[in-house]
Design a binder for these strands. Structure first.
Lengths: 257, 257
DNA sequence: ACAGAAAGCTAACATGCGTCAATAGACCTC
DNA sequence: GAGGTCTATTGACGCATGTTAGCTTTCTGT
């Protein structure tokens, strides 16, 4: 009830359903997808920077991102560190269903549309729809796999390559939900956002963006990336998409329940 | 069957059960713990550096660490990046139960003792013991929380503080399973291991260890850390244990099944 | 159209970290 | 206990990144 804060611009409009359940999609049939759509009880829009969930919050519902991007952030000192990004179709706080309090905050990156599912409904899912429950567990494991990749990226790459890798990852994730356009990737990220994702200062993020431009790898303007050659960008960033399990590596062959 | 490689030094000896199920422990009763102990079908010992599981492996059993430490590693270029550490009582590849292939490797850090649970048994657990299934899901969510903290640490701290934070985390995790000694924390880590965890060169890890010594924060000799003042070390590393959910933040108050 | 605010850009200098080279200490094997 | 190997250590130099300061461009609201 109080977990969602910020300015609500409108609410209660229809879901497209087009990409609903995002990466869970290929593991589920139409019946499952309808079932998930029915779980969503309320839909809201929020503006840029809205703090949707706060570190330490105890929730009684979970949030699915329908439109836009959100950041997972950890605050320390007086600075913000971005530890993850979610794209449409992702549940942003499924872990809040099993863990009492949240270990990080969720902040809107640009305008967002979100749907809410009560934990009570999720409990019913766990009971009645093992397929969907399994797909949801898969989704949290996929988040963990992405976290591990981010750790490696921070350990291995310099700032320009980190930024390139970030966009490469987003491009692949958006491809998986059919949300890409040919030669660009549009985001509302500022250079400060990029800096907070890459663990560098805003000024150095600016240098890094400049280097990508200079090298001809990509042109980034106000968050929007333009490139004629995604393959080159991905090679430059040493990007390998395996960790995103785009081929649907959920074990469904052997029913558990 | 072939997922476990390396030199097996002995096998088939009794479990102590003392810390069995590690961080799951406080969420389970003695009956549950006995049940888990019975799940473990084989116990093996392996030497330092043994590659227990390989990126891309498809497994039909999951591994619990009983003694020692293991690294989660991602290899890229010709270098190894450590993206996580497990301590006794942790399942190291529960995600291999839901995901077809593994996104990273598991390598023994020093000598280890591990137990194996078949995925067939786990399927039975999911059906018959919702309490335990829940605790296992919790364990994978806790891993994700630790991953997020590592991301933040890499973004925020310099090398000396990263090393201090690493030992602070291990100290707290070992406390949770009753495995600490007063003024020290013994590990088999080399400075190269520390470097691969912190994303710096081995030489810089050496400088960082030197700085901790110089500052009087801690003395690290061949992986073993000595300090008279854990609080000071934790303050120096800006360590806050909340992300480890040591108070047992699993939502058990409302049964799901 | 204008003014203020937010975001992007540039330069100069300090520090963290990588690399190379060389040495010293610890452990292992015989 | 001698030799070899792995690990730890030190110094010199260069690049990556942080910090401060100031400036320019773009957005936004009126």
């Amino acid at each position: 009830m109080d977990a969602i804060r910020g300015d609500i611009r409108s609410s209660d409009f229809p879901l497209t359903g087009e990409f609903l359940a995002g990466r869970l999609r290929e593991h589920l049939d139409q019946d499952d997808l309808n079932y998930i759509e029915d779980l969503i009880e309320t839909v809201e829009e929020h503006g840029d920077g809205t703090r949707l969930l706060e570190t330490g919050d105890v929730t009684n519902k979970s949030t699915m991102l329908i439109e836009g991007y959100v950041f997972r952030t950890i605050e320390s000192g007086d600075r913000r560190y971005i530890v993850g990004i979610q794209v449409p179709g992702d549940f942003v706080d499924l872990h809040g269903f099993a863990l009492k309090r949240l270990d990080h905050s969720i902040v809107a990156a640009g305008p967002v549309k979100i749907g809410s599912v009560s934990h009570e409904s999720l409990r019913t899912v766990m009971q009645d729809r093992p397929n969907i429950a399994r797909a949801m567990w898969f989704a949290t494991l996929l988040d963990a796999s992405i976290h591990r990749k981010w750790i490696q990226i921070l350990e291995q790459l310099d700032a320009p390559k980190r930024i390139a890798h970030l966009y490469a990852e987003l491009h692949t994730r958006l491809e998986l939900i059919g949300r890409t356009v040919p030669r660009a990737l549009r985001t509302p990220f500022t250079q400060l956002d990029l800096a907070d994702m890459c663990g560098v200062s805003a000024i150095h993020a600016n240098r890094a963006v400049g280097k990508l431009r200079e090298l001809g790898v990509a042109e980034i303007r106000r968050g929007d990336l333009y490139t004629d050659d995604w393959d080159r960008l991905k090679r430059y960033a040493r990007f390998n998409a395996d960790y995103l399990y785009g081929d649907g590596a959920l074990k469904l062959d052997e029913g558990w329940n």
